[in-house]
């Protein structure tokens, strides 16, 4: 693998090393993304997870300030889970705006079987009211969850995404680094597929109805 001993890569400390491996693997001479249509993802346009991930078990607080048991409340629904924050200017609102635009165009018999869950990684600024106002810009059906920092960190760990980290921007401002992809759980309560930043409305419009109607029809 480009002259780097594999054993050393694998003993490295996680994400950064893996990122390097990923970059090396992905930018090779015959570059085609694994998330391309058809052959690698059973026709879906998201990115296949090599190991399906179980739907995480966590309870946070929704925008009406009631406890929300994620597994229980989303059981039986195609569930889209995204961690982000409302002060995020770039990727989060684009994901949400694209999803909202697609949800508006899909028929009700599809959308009523989908739950979109946005978990803030910035509970300090994203109160239930702030979250609700932000989500209503996109789609009032979108579910917003918050909680204590500890509970949100635990939810990210249970989900298996990198735990968000606060970044100081000076003058009292800060940003939060967080997972850039939307995880999609089918009704088998597994995520087989994720949607990275860069996914398009046409990709969502292609995949969501199929995921709702057929469940996981991948590998």
């Amino acid at each position: 693998m480009h002259g780097i001993p594999r054993s050393r890569i694998l003993t490295g400390t996680g994400a950064l090393v893996l990122a390097l491996v990923g970059l090396l693997a992905a930018c090779g001479p015959s570059t085609r993304p694994a998330a391309g249509p058809a052959e690698d993802t059973g026709g879906y346009r998201g990115a296949l997870l090599t190991t399906p991930r179980p739907k995480p078990d966590f309870t946070l607080v929704d925008t009406s300030e009631r406890p929300f048991d994620f597994r229980k409340e989303t059981d039986g629904f195609l569930t889209l889970l995204f961690f982000g924050y409302t002060h995020c200017p770039d990727i989060c609102p684009l994901h949400m705006a694209n999803l909202a635009a697609v949800m508006r165009k899909l028929p009700p018999d599809i959308t009523e079987r989908i739950k979109v869950v946005f978990v803030t990684v910035d509970p300090e600024r994203d109160t239930p009211a702030v979250l609700r106002a932000w989500l209503d810009h996109f789609d009032p059906r979108f579910i917003g969850l918050t909680g204590t920092q500890e509970a949100i960190d635990a939810a990210q760990q249970a989900t298996g995404v990198p735990v968000a980290v606060k970044e100081d921007l000076g003058n009292g401002q800060y940003a939060v680094s967080h997972a850039a992809y939307v995880l999609v759980y089918t009704t088998d309560n597994l995520a087989h597929i994720a949607y990275p930043s860069g996914i398009r409305q046409s990709d969502w419009a292609h995949d969501l109805p199929r995921l709702v109607k057929k469940g996981w029809q991948g590998q």
Partner: peptide
């Protein structure tokens, strides 16, 4: 494993999912 696949999907500029695109 998940990270790897995601990176494969997003690591290279100019590939289908490499650049961030809205519509």
């Amino acid at each position: 494993g998940m990270l790897l696949v995601l990176l494969l999907a997003s690591a290279c500029g100019g590939t289908r999912h490499g650049a961030v695109t809205g519509e």
